[in-house]
Amino acid sequence: MEGASIDSISKHLKMPKATTYSIFNEVVKEYGLHFVPEIDLEDIWKHEFIRISKHKSTKREMREEALAKIPELGVEEYITFIKFNKEVPNDEEILRALSNFTVPQFVAKLHGEEDLVIYEVAKSFYNLNKFLINFSKNLKDYNMLVNTSRIVTTFGFLPIRNELIDELMLSGSAKALLEGLNIDGRGEIKEIAKRFYQKPELLLYTMERLKESGLLKRITYFEAQPKSNINGIIKIAITNESDFLDSRNKWFAELIKIRPEEHLKYVYICDILNPSGILVFVNLSSNEEIDNLLNNMRKVIKGAEISYITMTKTLLGNLGIRNFDMRYSNQYKHLELEGLVPKVQRKEKKIRA
């Protein structure tokens, strides 16, 4: 893919460059587009592994160093719901309890059966647990119930924080590039190089390498001023596994083929293990829309209980883009294999040390 230069956008939209440029600026301003890298979190361990095993001259060296580091390779994603039994702490108290931790990437207040949702990325379950213990200790005056689940598959993404990227065992140039792109995904390489004391040529090479290997999936954006601030989470809790699995693929295929506009409302979808099911983060233009969405879902999805929780305020991080192209999801790949949707051409992944 050539990427979105004004030139290529103008070719794609079949519009003159000057018009394209002015509409581009308008769109960026209107929605507060903030360009960020989408990082393949599942593949981080491979890059870290290659890095720590490189330049190891003896077996002994490899063994000692690798053994010490292997348990910490890669990252895992989690979602935590918190319910306060009596009083709910105020925003400042929650933010204070979160500070100094690199584990939470997105935190929002909820209204309904849960009070708080936290999307976490941690190097190990131990790190996640350490965060959760300290978080609840920091809010020890409040009586709370914590429910955490490992995220298995995702659709869409939530931007991650530079504090977390900094903790990854990637090369200095890879971290500089990813952090620089996280600040401004369309920013010039020479500016990123200057900010992080790197050579621009090295960063360009790193970018090619990370794109080729798939660690840097693409540069996308989140909306700092979204069209609407009506956000929520739909909980799909499985009650009958076989009924559910049958209807699940039908639901995805219908979304893609029959209601392609509907998935634009789905900001982020993830499979969770506890309770076994799916969470769908949605962004809606009106409150009435939620009933339609839930009705559509309940018609197709069988063997599951479907409930809705309103997101009242984002305290940390940002929800991902609202214009996600479903063809780039793992779910789409799965449906492709089953022959339920048209095939899409994709690049092969290459990992170089």
Binding site: M1, E2, G3, A4, S5, I6, D7, S8, I9, H12, L13, M15, T20, I23, F24, E26, V27, E30, Y31, L33, F35, L181, G185, R186, E188, I189, L204, R218, I219, T220, Y221, I321, N323, F324, D325, Y328
Partner: peptide, 30 residues
């Protein structure tokens, strides 16, 4: 062209631009 149609057309263009930018929002080699 009546203003209302122009407005609708612009909204379609904006949406297509957003979709395009979400797939790969960066221009190469800068």
């Amino acid at each position: 062209m009546p203003k209302i149609i122009e407005k609708e057309k612009k909204a379609i263009i904006k949406n297509e631009m957003l979709r395009f930018l979400s797939i790969d929002g960066r221009s190469k080699h800068r």
